[in-house]
Design a protein around this nucleic acid. Structure first.
Lengths: 252, 252
DNA sequence: GTAATAGTGTCTTTTAGACAATATTTC
DNA sequence: GAAATATTGTCTAAAAGACACTATTAC
């Protein structure tokens, strides 16, 4: 915003500002469309999977795409529409039926290269959602009779628009975040064994972890109170394993 | 984007898509304005400082604000306007006169709460720029006869719009990034002593660091080739100190 | 010499990684 | 008992933090 040179911080009257706002008319320069796109991750069949929809219309008709939609913008100054994160929650709910506010959802950035959508200039604000596997199975994307489906992200898919780039950014975000916060639990069932949690880590990081060494990390989290023991055991093909549950976040 | 249920990935003809695009007319639902706002950091007088402008117009007339401006959006499909990061570079250049493409500039996210600008719905994409102190002094913001000025961010300032929130996010971003990448060098003169680099770390982290322990970290970076020794020494009030220079990034 | 700051060394604790070994259950 | 895997333990190396100490220069 180019500023005229006015200094000294003279407090201007509320009345004057009111008059300014009344007189304000939006310029007629072009505005972009703003969409909110979601990378909804879950663990499916032992792999990191994301929800994709098949496009039914041009452009990119028939191609896989990330779920998303237009940000709802109000018509006047008093009603300016919905917040970005609310639009993301709404999309999440529409695509999966999941409206639980506890589901992890966070913004990872804006993507807005000119030409990314051939129809018009679009700025997409991307969000990452993490859905526990038992919840994901119950959603629209859980079955495969619908247009939305969870697919293994380690397998290459031809995606519409620049959604491949957004997906890559989302994977990088989750990998980085895994090392500093408790997001692994957002992709793990309510109760889990040490090995099951290790599986989640392995799937996100894309590499195997030593069971003994992972156990040490796990026990540290237990001491810190991030994880709590339960009385139950999980039956396995061999020796049963203790079940634990997530107790508290290690950072807000 | 709501999808009609079409499956099977039948590849559609280019001609059909072309026809679709020709017929496409943007809907008349409201679009938001999109701006790019910058948090331009430097080190000034031994403190982390950011560039602020004084608003000359309503709303928030007379208040401090982050420099920023509207994203330029083209009028038609063929010419969709400038990229987000190009808009950020343009603003950086306009506000500081610095057009060097080597200046660190990266996006930290989109801010778009309804009501953040009383005039109309605005989505702001925020960028962080890091400017070396010797460069910052030469800029418009270096003196204080202009409307743009670098101010110590650890002192509270009443900022326009939600710019306080954006500034806080930018500071958090830089602090996190300091621990994993080489951004400290983006705020350090070309050549520097160990103590001077430590000063940069201290100013960003907001806490003192042990000189002996920091030296060990420093020497590790020297071994890794991130830093290189020079032949020069810096004269100090007491024992002179060796000068080093930044050699290579530790991650792209 | 004295003050100031550059630079070195020591000790402890934490964490990670590689990897061997033991324990307990199902079958 | 055999197979599987949960669990424990050992050794090494890297890194961080606290803190005392030495070296070299300006004045």
């Amino acid at each position: 915003m180019s500023q005229s040179i006015t200094r000294g911080g003279s407090s201007t009257s509320k009345k004057e500002e009111q008059a300014f706002l009344e007189a304000y008319r939006p310029g007629d320069y072009a505005r972009p469309s703003v969409t909110v796109d979601l990378v909804i991750f879950t663990i499916k069949d032992g792999a990191l999977a994301a929800l994709f929809v098949t496009r039914g219309e041009h452009p990119w008709k028939g191609a896989l795409a990330l779920p998303g939609g237009f940000l709802r913008v109000g018509k006047d100054r008093a009603e300016q529409g919905e917040d970005l994160v609310d639009a993301a929650r709404r999309e999440l709910s529409e695509e999966t039926g999941l409206s639980d506010a506890r589901i992890y959802l966070t913004q990872i950035g804006a993507f807005g290269k000119p030409g990314r959508d051939p129809r018009t200039r679009v700025i997409s604000v991307a969000y990452v959602a993490l859905v526990r596997p038992e919840l994901a199975q119950k959603t629209v994307g859980g079955g495969d009779a619908t247009h939305a489906q969870f697919l293994d992200v380690s397998k290459p898919h031809k995606l519409a628009f620049d959604h491949g780039e957004i997906l890559a950014a989302a994977r990088a975000f989750v990998q980085r975040e895994l090392l500093v916060s408790s997001i692994a639990f957002e992709l793990t069932p309510e109760t889990f064994t040490i090995q099951e949690l290790r599986g989640t880590y392995e799937v996100i990081l894309g590499e195997p972890l030593d069971p003994g060494n992972f156990r040490k990390r796990f026990l540290r989290m237990l001491e810190e109170g991030i994880i709590a023991e339960t009385r139950e055991m999980r039956r396995t093909p061999s020796k049963p394993a203790r079940l634990y549950r997530f107790a508290k976040r290690n950072r807000s």
